Amino acid sequence: MHTRARIIVSILIAGGVTVLGGHTALAAGDDDGRVIRTGPCSGSTDWKIKAKPDDGRIEVEGEIDSNRTGQTWSWALNHNGSSSARGSSVTGGRSGSFEVERRTVNTSGTDRFVFRGTNARTGEVCVARVSL
């Protein structure tokens, strides 16, 4: 890696923010091991996914924010390539969003999560990924 690239990477890591392919990864400031990623869906909706260690397990939270109340979304949460949970949710509240939270086993090595949502009416798709 060139010196300039090393400096840029060091600055981004020190600042706790990296941008990868249009998606943002934020490191928590209180050293609790939390990883937060955000990004756009295939339409105007946004997604967020968070993962953090929690008493020997991993707490994962996926959020879809369409800014429209009353939309039905089917969703699935995969952990290391296997289905961990699935269901459907309706966006609500002033924010027009919904959240799915699960506690999963903490396997040895890196745990990879994919939270995928599909809008039942429009077919818009959100795919959020995080590793811990």
Results as ranks from 00 to 15, higher is better:
Cys41Val: 04
Ser95Tyr: 13
Val100Thr: 06
Asp32Lys: 15
Ala27Arg: 05
Gly43Pro: 01
Ala120Arg: 14
Cys41Phe: 04
Gly62Ile: 00
Ile13Glu: 11
Ala51Met: 04
Ala28Leu: 03
Ser66Cys: 06
Asp65Val: 06
Gly16Leu: 06
Arg37Ile: 03
Gly70Ser: 03
Gly93Thr: 10
Ser66Thr: 15
Asn119Gly: 03
Gly43Asn: 05
Ser97Asp: 14
Trp47Asp: 00
Lys52Ser: 00
Ser74Gln: 13
Leu26Met: 12
Gly15Gln: 11
His2Trp: 11
Glu59Thr: 10
Thr24Trp: 14
Arg68Pro: 14
Ser84Gln: 15
Val125Gly: 00
Arg121Asp: 02
His2Tyr: 10
Ile13Gln: 08
Ser74Gly: 03
Ala28Tyr: 04
Gly92Gln: 13
Leu12Phe: 08
Gly70Met: 08
Ser42Gly: 04
Glu124Asp: 15
Thr118Arg: 14
Cys126Ile: 07
Gly70His: 13
Leu77Gln: 06
Thr104Ala: 03
Gly70Glu: 00
Lys48Thr: 06
Gly56Glu: 06
Ser97His: 09
Ser44Lys: 06
Asp46Ser: 14
Val127Phe: 03
Val17Tyr: 13
Gly16Arg: 01
Ala25Tyr: 13
Gly62Met: 01
Ile13Thr: 13
Ile64Val: 15
Ser74Glu: 07
Ser84Pro: 01
Arg6Ile: 03
Thr18Met: 12
Cys126Thr: 12
Ile11His: 10
Thr122Leu: 07
Arg34Leu: 04
Val125His: 03
Gln71His: 10
Ile36Cys: 07
Asn80Gln: 12
Asp30Ile: 12
Ala120Tyr: 11
Thr107Phe: 11
Arg37Cys: 01
Gly39Arg: 02
Thr24Asp: 01
Gly21Glu: 14
Ser95Ala: 15
Val105Arg: 14
Ala28Trp: 02
Lys50Ala: 05
Asp31Ile: 03
Ala25Val: 09
Thr118Tyr: 04
Gly56Gln: 10
Ala51Ile: 06
Val17Cys: 00
Arg34Gly: 00
Thr24Asn: 04
Lys50Met: 06
Phe115Ile: 06
Pro53Cys: 03
Asn67Leu: 09
Val90Arg: 15
Gly81Met: 08
Phe113Gly: 01
Lys50Tyr: 02
Ala25Gly: 04
Ser44Glu: 02
Arg129His: 13
Gly29Met: 08
